[in-house]
Amino acid sequence: MSRLPPLEELVNLFEVEEVARQRLAPELFESIAAGAGAGLTLGRNREAFDRITLRPRVLVDVRAMDLGTQLLGRKLETPILVAPTSRQTLLHPEGELATLRGAAAAKATVVLSSRPGIPLERIAAQARGAFWCQLEPETGAGEFRQLVRRATDAGAQALCLSAGWRGEKPAPPVDWTLVARVREWTPAPLWIKGILAPGEARTAVEKGAQGIIVSNYGGRLVDGAMAAIEALPAVVEAVGRHVPVLIDSGFRRGTDVLKALALGANGVMLGRPPLWGLAAYGAEGVQKVLELIQTELALAMGLCGKPNLAAIDRSLVKIHKR
């Protein structure tokens, strides 16, 4: 095995990926990297960012940089969260515990998978930072209610229902009667993840979702789906200004995050990058990944004349045909 470079030598997320590639057994690394089918959507998620350029404004005082934001009444230090990914103990013995510790050190919220490597209650008992819990579409009301209750009792600040997702296999359709009852069972707001079509975003909101997460699950579910960032503008437009929208799938650079914010997202989630950090370095790797991209975002904002998120709008980006 090649030497493990000291964390301070790593200058971007792709380099953390490279270290993870060298450290992990090939099947394990591939299990993180893989996309569905021929990897078309996997590729598009990245390529789409090359068709969006930034329009920087100058001569704006940007001494006081502030990446803070509010999501459904909760203050976030930065608009970057950790996306739900399952069984993190496969990558590192401390699994989710390390992820939460690293994220807390970087002041980032983690969305815990519905299939963690460590029981939810044990994670919650040791968690110092904020976390949300993911739910999968269930058929039985009893089961669903039970999951909501467990997450709420554990202290989840929000719930995230992954539509279309059941451990990487196509799931049953979302049972809207259950969604409608979630508010009876918990004060935690409910996000619905996995939306690409504006019509579906509208439906989800009508049926009781308080927030929408635009996602193609990192290209792992349906090959040939559009890039998440390409789907974003229409979803934002469909749900209107009062419904918050998050996005994930393919975010690796601070400028990627900035583009999503300019196109109307309220925040961005990272799936694979924290796993690379976790696999190679444990909690400190997760922290490093988050801090690298937070710094890149702050830098890009400063160079664009945007000292805070409120200053970012659609005029900051230009979308190109190629």
Binding site: V58, D61, R63, M65, D66, G302
Partner: peptide, 18 residues
């Protein structure tokens, strides 16, 4: 240190400076 590990150079430039 500046937040977010930034290295300031001319963050205060504005049209007033101009």
């Amino acid at each position: 240190p500046a937040p977010y590990r930034l290295q300031p150079q001319n963050p205060d430039l504005s049209w007033k400076t101009v």
